[in-house]
Design a protein around this nucleic acid. Structure first.
Lengths: 192, 192
DNA sequence: ACCCTAGCAGACAGGTCTGTATATCACAAT
DNA sequence: ATTGTGATATACAGACCTGTCTGCTAGGGT
């Protein structure tokens, strides 16, 4: 352990990556409690001991899963072309519509996880909370730039609309969701 | 089995009632997959054989749980004093705020159940769907009476708002939800 | 040549899950 | 008095759950 031990740590081996990818897919597709460790390691082609080397427990994997989802969402928003605040808000909200085109949409992964984790003090709920705060505050900042008199209230309404429309894309007629997104943004933002 | 066998069927015994009440509480509090049959019958004080006499399987109990929740919601709406459509809509939406005052709110039980049941063909999902259709159509009728030019679209937006605010009352600051409900209805309905 | 790390494979323990089966009890109608 | 029904208590089967443990293999740095 003289220096840094080769360059293993930076990438941390492909096993962890495979585990996280497989868990992400299975947790989202089937729900968290419905997916066991045995199935994850089997589909990832990883030994059980290796799994427990990377994640101390299943709950740690669940948190990593949600942090991964959070990271992807933030990256997608960060990759949006910079434009006027009002257009930025529309662009962010229109990301909801992508849930329709991409098949296999199963609702918001954070709401789904929250349904399975009642204890608000659990690390899983903290990860969910971090995501929600980021989303709300991002919208609030843009709304303030746009001159909204009550950016926090409007942001909360946009968050609620997002959650509701994401669930609607899962449970109701997904095809009608894109039109609803546009209509919702128009009604909420033009009336201030 | 000549006539009706005494008057047992009308009430169907208190065992079923106790089972359903206990399951309703536990499923909602802890999630569905997290609650086992053993725990339900223990807390209900019912023998296992009795349980399987009333419900052929756990899934049947889950469906009964959701139908019970649905029944309660429809009864609450039916009990609202009759008034002008616009006020009826507000009154229905303001029922969301009751989730705040009543402690132990854990989000919409139908969204929570949907998170745990990915198969859209399952009886559980059918029960969820029935509820959502009823809610949407109830709002749509009132909106049509109120002269809304696109009652179906507005109803979908109100449904999404309801779902989102119910989740917000669970995951975010519950105290601010009642004000958000009023604000949301005002912005959606005054701008048509 | 040596060692150390990472990974693979699989057995195992202890618990929980659903659903079935067995045996006993209480009560009500015939 | 007898029969039938519903409830109770408990044991059981078979599967699955998390998490630990023991061997074995391969590769790369020293």
């Amino acid at each position: 352990m003289k220096q840094k031990k080769s360059e293993s740590p930076p990438e941390a081996g492909p096993a962890r990556r495979r585990l996280l990818d497989t868990a992400t897919r299975l947790f989202y597709e089937s729900g968290i409690h419905a997916v066991g460790i045995d199935r994850i390691i089997a589909e990832a082609g990883v030994a059980k001991a290796t799994f427990y080397n990377h994640f101390p427990s299943k709950d740690h994997l669940v948190v990593a899963y949600l942090e991964e989802m959070d990271r992807l969402g933030r990256a997608a928003v960060a990759a949006l072309p910079k434009q006027a605040p009002r257009k930025m808000i529309s662009a962010i909200m229109e990301r909801i519509s992508e849930a329709v085109v991409a098949g296999g949409w199963r609702g918001c992964p954070f709401l789904n996880a929250a349904a399975e984790y009642p204890d608000p003090a659990s690390p899983v709920r903290h990860a969910i909370n971090a995501r929600r705060v980021w989303y709300h505050d991002s919208l609030q900042s843009l709304l303030a730039e746009d001159g909204d008199p009550t950016p926090s209230v409007t942001a909360s309404l946009l968050v609620a609309l997002s959650d509701g429309l994401l669930e609607s894309a899962y449970l109701d007629d997904a095809e009608s969701v894109p039109a609803l997104v546009g209509e919702a943004v128009a009604r909420l933002l033009d009336r201030r």
